[in-house]
Amino acid sequence: MSDLSGGFTQAPQQSARAFRAVLEAMARPGRVQVLDGAAPPAPLSPAAGAVLLTLVDQSTRLYLAPSHDTPEIRHWIAFHCGAPLTEADAADFALGTWEALQPVARFAIGTPDYPDRSATLIVECDALAPANARLTGPGIETEALAHLPETSAFVANHASFPLGFDCLFTAQDQVLGLPRSTEVEAI
């Protein structure tokens, strides 16, 4: 039997706090936010678990990359979020390590009429440091430094703005946002 605990015990309040952390993360790219309250089965991090509990449900299609496609995680998501699982190109949300999510070019980037019809990638990382990229753009006063799995993919993603996917990088109870609007440069 799989363990179905680890959801929010006070969903309205906890998901509200979690959303604010995600909002701050997305609105201030490069600034790490704390995101706790979820205790999902490994290898799903508490932060990624909280993102799922806060944003994903029956009305969103979720892609599980091989790194996170385990029976335990499937059960946990089915029980707590009820999100239908799908292929990468049809996903509203995708979950996995950066390597497992490759190639990222298959994810939806929206259309010129509806740039919002794009995927949000929840990228599980070992750590959100040390910094290896310089970020500029909306949400950043001058510049921000961040740890990204690579830079070229994000440079390419930003080049198609306003189309593009958006990323939430998660590690343990931390989250870092990288919307398509951010310009990325390796340092």
Partner: peptide
């Protein structure tokens, strides 16, 4: 419910807010 809206509605609105942030 807390802040009136049901949780599914709040999730839908939250997703829209994040898209708005991503495409100012």
């Amino acid at each position: 419910n807390f802040a009136y809206l049901d949780e599914a509605t709040k999730r839908m609105i939250r997703r829209a807010i994040l898209k708005g942030i991503a495409v100012p």
